[in-house]
Each structure stands twice: as structure tokens, then as C-alpha cells.
Amino acid sequence: MLGIQRPVSPPVKATFLVVAQNHERDGILSTILQIEKRFNHQFHYPYVVLSPEPLTDAFRNAMATATKAKVIYGTIDDSLWTYDDAEKANNASTVRQLITRVHRFYTGFMHRHSLLQGFDYYWRVEPNVEYHCDIDYDIFQWMKNQRLQHGWALATMATTEASLHDTWVSYSNHIRSAVLDNEFVTDESTFFIFITDNGAAYNGCQFGSALEIGSMEYMRTEEYDRLFRFLEQSGISYGRETDVALRMFMTTIHLRKNHIHFFNDIGVSKGGLTHCPSEKYLSTKCHCPQPMAANASTCQSRFENLRHGLRWDEETYRRRTQPQRLPIHLDNLKLTS
């Protein structure tokens, strides 16, 4: 068999990020078991598990069973979690409060947490996400080598949060006057063109959080924090689709299209949405719950029209991912009958 030389420690400062409470244990465990099976049993990237409440021994024991990688536990301080004024004003239910707090944390505070300061990249871990493809190259190393800031596999249309469209009007007017100029807004190399129609109204496109792999570099800038404070002051109402949409709003001034990568080779499902690659050469790596077909998402098609060459042929796939594959010890090569 082929002996694989595993690195003593991961070569990139990256982590899987879990934000969860005790009642989400089973869903988180399900996702982590698949991440380990499909990817991390080879690369051993650590997990940072953050919670606003003390996690039970049952939760921690489940994590220890699911992965051999290092697991770092931390709490989310009230100053990064509670949103009392808005919650009281809206007379929010417990479920609504949780949605508000989780999405607000991801949007404006996760990159500030002390346990994440030693990491440059994160892979967001959400409950009950299914991964359908084996990943045999280092995703984080790929992100670093290509100088990418955000990776995704599912693109969706925000339809349930009407307030997002009002927020975009306020936000875009602000950045046009305070940050950007018309030349930037109409520049086809920017991200602006993906989420707007002719640089004007928000079209609802966003990258789903089922697969969210990113750099925290641009989030740690004063400019990002300043824009987040503006959104808070504008009275944004956090909802189920809010944090990924707001992140996309703020990336419009930080990222260009070539900073963003579509992981076509990572099949993923959540909440009835599925992406699986249609390329025949990937069929041995992927086991999808439905016949392999191209994702019909309007937003995904829009992004692919803006950035060509995202679906690779087999030769391109091998060539581009090879530098991120684990080295093989030829001395350990054994022939078996």
C-alpha cells in the first residue's frame, strides 16, 4: 500500500469553527464525522468550539469520539453575544433571539474572539451538513497558495428577508458617499457586480453557509469594523439569511472576483439544497443522494458567467490540486497480490 507522510502540524494557520450550544450536539457531531471521513483524517486541522453556555461532558465526549484532531473550547462573552436593545424592542422569542445572536456574532465578532487570533483561515461548521465527496488535497493550503479570501459551493437567493433589500439601499448609499466612487461600483473585476443588478439594487444572491471557507484577514481591518458599526446603527434586523448576506455586502469593498473560489469538487447538502459536481472524472470521489447534475441555482450561474473556467477538466484538476496533496513515501510502496 502507499504510505502517506502526514505533516507533524498543519502547514496553514487554519481551523474548523464551531459555534454551538448543547442542544445542537447531534447535528454538529453528524457534520464533523463527515468532515473527518471526507477530509480531515488526513490533515488534522484543529477545531475551535465556541459557545455562550458551558458545554456538557456529553458534548465534549462526542467531540473526542468524532475526531483525533485538537479541539479548543472557549466561551462567547456576553459583550459579543447579547443584543438586548433589539431583542427587547422586537419582543423576540427565544428562537428569534438565538438566530439574532448567532448571525450577529458571525457577521461582526467571530474574527475578534481571542481563540481565533492565532488563525488566518476558518471552515464554518454547521449542524446537519452532508458532504458527498472525498477531498484528497489541502483546502486551506489551496486557499493560501491562490490568495483566496472566500470559498463556497452553494449559492442561493435570499427571498424571505425583505429587510435585506432595504439594508442594501442604506448600505450602498453610505459606501458610495463615504468609501467608493462610481468607477469602483462599475468595475467588472469587483464583487459589486455579482450581488447587484447594474450596480444598483440588491439581487438577493448570496453564498450559502453550508460550505463557508474563508480568510479572516479582511474582516480584521478597521474598514470592515466601521462598516459593521454602520449596519448596526442603521437598525438591521437579523434573520435566518442575514449573516451571509451582510458579509457579502461588506465584501463588496474588500474582495475582487478572483478572491473568491467556487469549490465545484466539494459536494454538499443542507436544508434541501444540494451541490454535486457533474464531471464524470469526479464520480469515483463523490456519492451523491441524487443523480449527479449541475446545480441549477440562478446565483451560481450568475457567478460562473462572471468568472469563467471554474469547472475544470480532469487534467486541469490534477495539475492545480497536486501541489496541495500530501507527499507519498516511495520507500513505503508495497506490492500486494
Rank of each mutant, 00 (worst) to 15 (best):
V179E: 09
Q5M: 11
M1H: 11
R229L: 14
G108H: 05
F228R: 04
D136E: 09
E130N: 13
E87M: 09
L310D: 04
F184T: 13
S51R: 10
Q42W: 13
Q141M: 07
D26V: 07
F263I: 06
Y224K: 07
D225V: 00
Q97V: 11
A86F: 08
I253E: 08
G267S: 07
T159N: 08
M63E: 09
E161V: 02
V268C: 01
G309R: 09
I175L: 01
T196S: 04
F119H: 04
H329L: 13
W142R: 11
T82I: 09
L50W: 04
N203D: 04
E304K: 12
S297Y: 05
M157R: 11
F263W: 13
N91C: 11
D138W: 02
Y218C: 06
D138P: 05
R302Y: 06
A20L: 10
T100A: 13
N203L: 02
S301W: 10
D225W: 00
Q322V: 06
D57N: 14
C205F: 03
N182V: 06
A162V: 14
G309H: 09
N182R: 08
D187T: 01
V49S: 05
V185Y: 06
F207R: 02
T107A: 11
T100E: 15
T316E: 15
G235K: 05
L55M: 01
P11D: 11
L231M: 12
L282Q: 04
Q146N: 14
Q206R: 14
G235P: 03
S93K: 01
L273K: 14
R320P: 03
L148D: 03
T316S: 13
S209D: 06
R96Q: 15
G199L: 05
V49C: 06
K270C: 07
S30P: 00
E183M: 09
L180K: 13
T316R: 13
G151Q: 00
L164I: 10
D26N: 12
C286F: 07
Y106H: 15
A153L: 00
M1I: 07
F43G: 02
G309I: 08
A20G: 07
E217M: 07
P52K: 10
D84H: 10
M110K: 12
Y131E: 04
L282C: 02
K257E: 03
V268Y: 03
Y73D: 04
L148W: 05
L306V: 03
D166G: 11
I76E: 05
W142M: 12
G3P: 10
V169T: 15
Y202N: 02
L116C: 04
N295A: 12
E130D: 14
R307I: 15
P11A: 09
A296R: 12
A69G: 02
Y202M: 03
S278Q: 13
T67R: 03
E87L: 13
S297M: 05
I213V: 15
E279D: 05
D166I: 10
V268I: 11
E304D: 10
E315Y: 12
W312C: 03
Q322R: 15
I260C: 03
T336C: 08
T160I: 10
T160E: 15
G204F: 02
G151A: 00
E304Y: 06
S283P: 02
A155C: 01
E24C: 04
S278A: 12
